[in-house]
Amino acid sequence: MSFITDALILGIIQAAPLVLAAVGFTLIFYLNGFINVAYSETITVGAYFAIVFNSMLRLNFYLAIIPSALLSGVISVVTYLVVFRPAFRRGVESTEMIILSVGLSFFLRYSLRLIFGSDLYSLDIVSPTSVRIFGVGITNIQLTALVLVAVISVALYLFIYRTNYGEMMRGLANNEVLAMVSGINPVRVSVLIWFIAGVAGGLAGLFYGVFSFVSTLLGWKLILIVIMVTIVGGIGQVRGALIASIGAGIITAAVTLLTKPLYGEVILLLTFIGVLRLKKSRR
């Protein structure tokens, strides 16, 4: 019994930042229809902004969250306007877009490396207090992350399915020409989506940075799981990404509790390949 509750609670806590990253990634995937590998750097950048504001400028951790998240959104918009939009206009196909995003990912990652060097950074947090829920110790920062994830997920869901902008985005993703004829400004909607996706990715990176060291490889280590979760959850399905992320968290936690941490990733990836196949054959 305790194994099941441990796996569930640890899984949900570990999944919290993953949910944010997966939801942000899903938005871009849904809108533009390609796997943006450079999203890994949006995640990394969030963690580094937090380092700059929190560890270097000595801002309170909770205050540092706000500018870090907003600036990650700005970086995401810049990658869209400077690289991806011009590439779309030049007619680069979707497979080539993925390779292009790999190039951008390298460029950004090693730019960060040139700026910050190869040192490992860690966030400056006043000793976290811990509470016990069903016998599992949870820190207050983990709880903050969980609450923020819940709030942001609900807000995003309402945004996509209940607001004007959400409707415009769905229209743009389904039929760009029809959307433009209907008077939707594609650039404005796209910029907004890339901004929101960037904020979500930045927050994900920031919360990962709380529990581990911050290095330039932070986002890269996560992006494969993020991509897998998004594809398995269903393209453009915020709900699907949410459920798949939590599932991924629970599988990893359960396997890690039973054996070695690396097996968690191995079993998760093999499960995902199996799910990809099953989804295809059901269609």
């Binding site: 080539e96 390779i99 292009l100 790999v102 190039g103 460029f107 090693y110």
Partner: peptide
């Protein structure tokens, strides 16, 4: 860094 930049420019 240059590999990444070159890949983008080529594509």
């Amino acid at each position: 860094w240059i590999y990444g930049l070159a890949l983008m420019l080529v594509l």
